[in-house]
Nucleic acid binder design. Structure first.
Lengths: 214, 214
DNA sequence: TGTAGCATGTAAGCCGTTACATGATTGA
DNA sequence: TCAATCATGTAACGGCTTACATGCTACA
């Protein structure tokens, strides 16, 4: 229709689509989101299976999207004096996705296929070099990782609870459940690695086995 | 001991430690590894829980590490004529980790603690925005992902088989098993998501449920 | 009055990728 | 002789982060 539809659907980094996607939940009918709020949403969603971009990136990405006509920046209409007592008047930029923006997200979803996931797992990376450390230290590392995993899982569970069974967020809830199952699986796997017998002889003892000294 | 031990253990990107770690397997006693071989090792190990760096990065990283004294670049001693018939004579740079390099890796392992893993999961990211697509398309995406998962798993299984039960690679085998279990878990989770009932009403039908049209 | 949260950016810089360029060796 | 693999780099650039800078509002 408009010339705006010509925008190349590629050329945008995945994080841009992620942010556009977040704007599709509240940014359409409502007043939109501030950069700050966008970052908060990201922390509660993207964080678990993507990356929560830095504040500065949220802003620079919004600038880019506004320039591309995919997002509208609403300088909020002043409200010169505090309208309601005790209510902070907000004079900030609120971002709203445009029709062109929505079209771009839909096209991206429909016409491109997802790459295989990339995992950056510092614990696994270090375990690979276990022979440079001690079995005790490797055990400790894995146990610490179990704690971190539990903490993360609790965070995500809180998010999941917020989503309750509201239908608008059916898919986000689904993704959250995916994440929970993922953390559970990783917990099981790491636990079983800890149970596993240590490296064969040679080394200083029992490997990953809890040292039954004495 | 030597002034080389002063090298700041930080300041190196994780990929540098990963590459140093790879050099610790063969690069110590043997003739070392070429950049090319290093990349191959990375493809068989790092790839599954980290990132397999581009060739160009392998070289630039080696350059950095050589400059830092953590790696030795051996310009191979010529072998002017093909020593053995049918055997390619290699006149290439082979990289060997130095004592300082080994110290740095060990210090990194012992003194720094791993960050929480980061997952970049394009499939989950798209599923989050499922309401912008059709349940059918989401189903198809997840099914395609299952195929990709199976292919990846097979690759990793092949790697695991190569590691057999050789003790030098006990830890790499452990990490490979971790990866296999991880892929299995993800397969289960995605399968269960596909079995799950679709989004409640409103939308055009049965959600993720296989459409029982007619 | 001060701190915490809200809000918005700029600047510098590293990590890492793709694209490009080059050339030797092996085997069909 | 041609293609595939081995082998090594440079250049340009993009994404994303950290550090820095600024200022307002709410509340204790």
């Amino acid at each position: 229709m408009t010339s705006a539809t010509v925008f190349s659907a590629e050329g945008l980094p995945p994080t841009a689509y992620a942010l556009l996607g977040l704007l599709m939940f509240t940014g359409r009918t409502d007043a939109g989101l501030t950069g700050y709020e966008l970052k908060q949403r990201a922390d509660r969603t993207l964080r678990y299976y993507w990356v929560s971009p830095a504040m500065s990136q949220v802003y620079s990405e919004m600038t880019r999207l506004v320039r591309a006509g995919l997002v509208l920046a609403l300088e909020s209409p002043a409200e010169p004096r505090p309208a309601v007592a005790g209510r902070r008047r907000r004079r900030t930029t609120r971002y709203v996705i445009t029709d062109a923006g929505e079209a771009v997200v839909r096209a991206w979803l429909a016409e491109t296929s997802p790459e295989f996931p990339v995992l950056k797992h510092p614990v696994a990376l270090r375990l690979l070099m276990g022979h440079l450390s001690t079995p005790q230290d490797m055990r400790a590392m894995l146990e610490t990782h179990l704690d971190a995993l539990a903490a993360r899982r609790a965070d995500l569970q809180a998010v999941r609870d917020m989503l309750a069974d509201r239908e608008e967020v059916w898919y986000p809830a689904m993704v959250a459940d995916w994440g929970l199952a993922y953390y559970d699986a990783e917990t099981q796997i790491v636990t079983s690695l800890l149970d596993r017998a240590g490296p064969p002889a040679g080394g200083a003892g029992a490997g990953l086995e809890p040292d039954a000294d004495g």
